[in-house]
Design a binder for these strands. Structure first.
Lengths: 186, 186
DNA sequence: ACAGCCATGTAACTCGTTACATGATTAC
DNA sequence: GTAATCATGTAACGAGTTACATGGCTGT
């Protein structure tokens, strides 16, 4: 009965386990505020595909809000008891794989011998800027959690993860800045 | 003429730009020692597929080492002048995207409300252990570069990237250890 | 009237994986 | 002779993307 879903399905199911009934659109927004920073925020079309699949498996249930004279059927999806059970069992049995990092900046640094050193430095400086932008985004998300982030409250764990992300961005920024210094002195 | 290849193709082409003519098998090993840490090390079959594609595009050239009485054709591939040009032009024109992190441990922490807190701590402790193992692997790779890692030498940039990776693992380890402490005191 | 956001979904496609199939070489 | 490693490739598939198509709702 454990149908071996991809991690992204469990991730979306997990977002639904945080409470509330969400539309696909809202779920995508929640993914943009959470999954984006340490997983991937699936494309809109993917969200709907997953919602259909999870529904078919009865892990979530879509409340139909159909109205007369309208063709479209906006639905709010909510996790089911079976969904919660399946999610818990996945968390308890599937091993947590080592993170996968796809780091285009590091990849380009590896190939530094092919480009003008100035360019490499510029690229790293731009990366520092985008780290700052990302960090700012995540800070906003983290702030929006304040008030419901105490132990036992709904956003406790999400806030821990957000803090982790902020630490990561800070450490990465420092490392890259040291790297820039090092390249300047070559 | 810029045929918009996936990043992984450029990554493999880049590994070939480090010098030497390699077989698919050897290229896979080089990927395991480099790309694995900040990109992905493609499957063996994918390496051969890429080699075929890059060959067809004349970005690399495979020297045929066919011998009589043998059906198999082991080839050593070497980057061509066109390959170097294409790679350089990619490095200079394509923007370096922000890194993508797929972090199953962070994802699970987000869903901490669904599992026994003890289990979450155990998971984080196991993650610290696997970070140590990874770090050890990368350290070995970095050590194997020593001697040819000075400015201007072939492994200068690869060693910078390796150092970056080691810094990352160290910082991540500290962050997770603080997180474990925090969870202990809840 | 129009912009902008809310909302849902299909089709075609690419990337990259696992499973499978095969064979050569080296060391014990 | 047999295990391990070197070596190459094909087939089937899954995950997730972009492009496309459609329509409702709200504010100005």
């Amino acid at each position: 009965m454990s149908q071996e879903l991809p991690t992204t399905s469990f991730a979306l199911l997990g977002l639904l386990s945080l409470g509330d009934a969400l539309t696909g659109y809202e779920l995508k927004q929640r993914a943009d505020n959470t999954l984006r920073f340490y997983w991937v925020s699936p494309a809109m079309s993917q969200v709907y595909t997953e919602l259909t699949r999870l529904s078919r498996l009865r892990l979530i249930k879509g409340a139909d809000t159909r109205r007369p004279g309208h063709r479209r059927t906006p639905r709010r999806y909510r996790i089911t008891a079976k969904g919660t059970r399946t999610l818990k069992s996945w968390l308890e049995t599937a091993p947590a794989d080592f993170p996968v990092l796809k780091h285009p900046v590091a990849l380009r640094l590896l190939l530094g011998h092919l480009v003008d050193p100035e360019r490499t430095i510029t690229m790293l400086e731009e990366y520092v800027e985008s780290l700052a932008a990302r960090s700012k985004d995540l800070h906003q998300v983290r702030d929006s959690l304040a008030g419901a982030d105490a132990v036992g409250q709904p956003y406790h764990y999400p806030s821990l993860v957000a803090d982790w992300g902020l630490d990561y961005y800070a450490a990465e920024t420092e490392t890259v800045q040291r790297l820039i210094e090092r390249l300047h002195h070559e």
